[in-house]
Write a protein that binds this DNA or RNA. Structure first.
Lengths: 250, 250
DNA sequence: GCGGGGCGTTGCACCATTTGCAACAGTCAT
DNA sequence: ATGACTGTTGCAAATGGTGCAACGCCCCGC
């Protein structure tokens, strides 16, 4: 592993917490000011870091552009998108697409519902991993030891009284999700919002993404939402078929 | 500037175009495979790069998380957000907030309108710089030489017949915007969508951000939209005052 | 107006780090 | 099996990064 690059990259999460001046960066990195300066300059040249008027550094614009381009080039997303739109038109609720990567689950696409629901989700934002339907679907498919390892090291914030309380409950839920092939989040994240989700599988049968439909229970009750499950699953399966076909098998 | 870091960072935009394997990365960087491998490994350790099942590399999840954290810590955004929400509630249309940085204008916040408009904008996405109201506001405030330099090197895509056609027209428009203190985009980006925008100024009077209201002309005509201008400007001014007050003058 | 402290910046000499090579290992196709 | 291809490792050479010390600058207090 390259030391120089390692140090340079360590600056990014540091600046993510807020702007910092040269001295602060050098201190936190444990290197000389001049070293920090050169690293920052290089980051700056690549647009990853921006220098504001008060000379302090903060993360730069190119970072967004990169994240943006990256998400738009994900092939699952590309294939799934039209299906999400169609589903959204059919049922009117907000539709999400998410993937798992390195112990995190994050939204990579979203189609807003026509009901005025303000869900706090955003593309690129890490998902509430212990409660979200998509997170359950993605984690349920991991090999057992990995699933267990992740479950153990997670926090279990009680967003509501129906949030998953601890690792044991979570693993049990994951097992159920794995068996039934779909997942729900009934008020586990936001008291008034329910979700149902289904997995998208690649050629090898592994879950590569998950999609979900979210609706506030002032519009549809949880039971009514569950009646949409077959439609959601059919959509997810359609995406799976298309995705499996288009990818060179490995 | 650090060569090692420079090379490592050059990998990111390269991967933004799509996944690539070790050999391709090494070739495009012009370095030996083993060198590329070590750089990729370092990037991987920091989560900026992800290795998919077929061994190819693509941009990683942490990139999104970083961009996300960064945008949430922008103080203009933090201050402006409640104002955007209020404005949105009053008029029902989509509200955007954007900043200028290193020759780019990008959205840093967005509140969706209640009308089913599907505008292709997203937080972190670079704005259509030659036509968007927010872009005009931000560029209009730059020192003259910088403004000219940017105008010259931009492309002027004709999204619609009313798009800004060339540098001369753009500079003229910027001068007008600068004088009047507000800006519009009347069908210059999407034929059926009009925007009006107003600048947010820091303590020194410089424009630090810009906000805009967008509405499809099937809902309100351009003239009707313009009647909302005073309200938009008042909101922007309120943000300006709050922002100026909270920032240590320089 | 003068002097001190803080911060960012530069040139330089040393040596740790990175580099490319060459050889190895694994996988797939012929 | 054999060959071609890709990813991986150990190593010796030297390039490129590092920390130091000195400088310039601005701001603040005396």
């Amino acid at each position: 592993m390259s030391q120089t690059v390692d140090r340079a990259l360590s600056i990014l999460p540091l600046l993510a917490q807020g702007p910092a001046d040269l001295g602060q960066v050098a201190d936190r990195l444990g290197v000389h000011k001049s070293t920090a300066l050169r690293l920052l300059r290089t980051l700056h040249d690549h647009g990853l870091v921006y220098r504001q008027q008060d000379q302090r550094y903060r993360l730069g614009a190119r970072l967004f552009a990169l994240a943006q381009e990256a998400v738009e080039n994900l092939d699952v997303r590309e294939i799934a998108h039209p299906h999400l739109v169609t589903l959204n038109e059919q049922i009117g609720h907000t539709v999400h697409l998410a993937v798992y990567e390195e112990s995190e689950v994050l939204y990579i696409d979203k189609v807003e519902g026509r009901y005025p629901v303000r869900m706090y989700s955003r593309i690129g934002k890490p998902v509430a991993i212990t409660v979200a339907a998509v997170a359950k679907l993605l984690l349920a498919d991991l090999p057992e030891h990995e699933r267990r390892a992740i479950a153990e090291k997670l926090d279990y914030p009680m967003y509501t009284s129906r949030s998953t309380p601890n690792a044991a409950a979570f693993l049990k839920e994951l097992a159920a999700v794995r068996d039934q092939g779909w997942a729900t989040d009934l008020g586990g994240h936001e008291e008034s919002i329910n979700c149902i989700g289904a997995p998208i599988r690649g050629a090898a049968g592994r879950v590569v993404a998950a999609m979900s439909v979210s609706a506030p229970n002032v519009v549809v009750t949880a039971e009514e939402l569950l009646t949409l499950l077959p439609l959601v699953r059919r959509t997810a399966d359609a995406v799976s078929r298309e995705y499996s076909g288009s990818v060179t098998p490995h």
